[in-house]
Structures are given as structure tokens and as C-alpha cells.
């Protein structure tokens, strides 16, 4: 049975990328602990709107942990702390204690400028994918799907890499603002599959170059990214990206 908790919430307000930003605070009373974190924010916003104030802005969409839209830094952890890793929308209030202070911040990274409050611009991720995160294949009639045999193990591993939802928690957690986990997951997915091999070298080079150009930091293998990834991507992907990249460069 659900029980109610009360707590103080500190949430980041920032009017555009140039604004300095500050925290607003509010006491939240008797929130059922089976409420999701975003539903709690809905309640907060409902209260703010009732008082004639502008609501707290944050990105969210599917609310089932797959679209990657939600992006809140809760109590010092991207998406908030859960055991298995989950997105903010899958964080439930039962994870918090009565009387606690909950601090909500946006992803802070030069690669993700703030649009408003906790809504950030992650367009850089799209640009990285555009640089090479695909196989060049025309719509039409490729060969029969079963003509390419892929060992189950490889397919499963590629699937794990492909699970990345592009939420940006890895960049948010990284003290270097590095996007390596994101980039490596896509490179790994396609590098593991025969369909992706023909362009593997080109892809690794192009995506890394774009990532660097967009001002993301350098990976120092702190593993903060994999610790917070809601889809449990691992730095084994980063090793693979390094391998692919170095191989490609040495072959040039």
C-alpha cells in the first residue's frame, strides 16, 4: 500500500542559455510514494499554475523509459538513483525519504545548452548520428533478411549496444562532458553486425570527428557514464570504438 511522504524540492530555473539561473524551492506535502517522479513534478506544476506562476519546464514524453526525452539530474545523479538504472520517468517516489530535500538540475554540459529550466538542447547527438551512424542502404529490395546469417551472440550483443536511448545521461555524468558512451554504442552496434562492416572505418572516423567538433570532452575512463546509463551500456563499447577508430586511422 502506498504511503505519503513530504519533502522539500529545489528545482533549477533558467531563462535561456545566457541566463545565470537559480534554484526555486517548495515544500511538497503528502505525495503518495507510488507516484512517479515526473507525476510529482506535474503536481508541483499544477500548484504553480494555480498560483498563476509559470510552470517548471522539463523534457519528458513517453514516460515508460524508452524515448530518452526525460533528462533530470536528481540529487546528484542523472535520472536519479535506482538499482538497475532507469530514466527519470521510471523513478518512483518510494525511493525518497520523508523530510528529504530533493535537488533537481538540468544536464550541465557545454554540449547541451539549456533552453529553459531543465530542458536542454541535445541536437548535438543528432548531428553525430548524421555524421555516420547508419548503413548506407537504399529503400527498395535488399537481399532476403535471412541471407545474412548472424550468430545469436553477435546479434544479442549488437542489440545491447543498440538499446541506447540517446538521453545524454552519460554526458551529464561525465566530468569531462564526453559523449563517448553514446557514440561508441552506435558504432559498436553497427561494427558487430556484418551489415555495418563495409562502412565501419568511415563511420568511426566521421562520428568521432563530429563529436570532437561539437565540443564534447575526452574520455578518461572514469566509468561514470556506464554507472548512470539507464540502458546499461558499458565501456566495452568505448574500447570497441577506440579499436575501430585506431584501426581505421592506421589503415589510412
Amino acid at each position: 500500500m502506498a504511503k505519503n511522504i513530504s519533502f522539500k524540492i529545489r528545482y533549477w530555473k533558467q531563462n535561456g542559455p545566457k541566463d545565470k539561473g537559480h534554484f526555486d524551492e517548495r515544500e511538497m506535502k503528502d505525495i503518495p510514494d507510488d507516484t512517479s517522479f515526473l507525476e510529482m513534478l506535474d503536481i508541483l506544476n499544477e500548484q504553480l499554475v494555480e498560483e498563476g506562476k509559470e510552470p517548471f519546464v522539463f523534457d519528458h514524453d513517453c514516460r515508460e523509459g524508452i524515448c530518452g526525452m526525460c533528462s533530470l539530474y536528481v540529487n546528484g545523479t542523472p535520472h536519479g538513483k535506482t538499482e538497475r538504472g532507469a530514466t527519470t520517468c521510471q523513478l518512483y517516489m518510494r525511493r525518497f525519504k520523508d523530510g528529504e530535500t530533493i535537488t533537481v538540475e538540468p544536464w550541465r554540459s557545454a554540449g547541451f545548452p539549456v533552453i529553459k529550466d531543465c530542458m536542454v538542447d541535445r541536437g548535438a547527438f543528432d548531428k553525430i548520428i548524421q555524421a555516420g551512424g547508419y548503413t548506407t542502404v537504399r529503400t527498395g529490395a535488399p537481399q532476403d533478411a535471412n541471407a545474412i546469417l548472424i550468430p545469436k551472440q553477435d546479434a544479442d550483443e549488437a542489440m545491447d549496444c543498440a538499446s541506447c536511448i540517446g538521453c545524454g545521461a552519460c554526458v551529464a555524468a561525465c566530468k569531462n562532458g564526453s559523449a563517448m558512451l553514446f557514440v561508441s554504442s552506435k558504432v559498436s552496434q553497427l561494427a558487430l553486425l556484418p551489415q555495418g562492416r563495409p562502412e565501419a572505418a568511415k563511420r568511426a572516423k566521421a562520428m568521432v570527428a563530429k563529436m570532437d567538433e561539437l565540443g564534447f570532452g575526452n574520455c578518461t575512463n572514469t566509468r561514470a557514464c556506464e554507472a548512470v546509463c539507464p540502458k546499461n551500456e558499458t565501456i566495452a563499447n568505448i574500447a570497441r570504438l577506440n579499436r575501430e577508430f585506431i584501426k581505421a586511422k592506421l589503415a589510412d
Binding site: 565540443g215 570532452g217 572514469t222
Partner: peptide, 27 residues
């Protein structure tokens, strides 16, 4: 470069995950 990529705003609260070695962040 890494400091520049991090941006000028710092987090008010940070909670280091257990997985992260102290040395790795203070190289």
C-alpha cells in the same frame, strides 16, 4: 578541453557512483 566541455555551470549536488574510482577522477 575537458573543462571547457564541462561548461561553466557546475552541479550543486553530485553523488559519485560507487563504480567510479577516486583515482580516475583525479589523474
Amino acid at each position: 578541453q575537458n573543462r571547457r566541455a564541462r561548461g561553466s555551470n557546475r552541479y550543486a549536488v553530485t553523488d559519485k557512483p560507487e563504480k567510479v574510482e577516486w583515482a580516475s577522477q583525479n589523474m
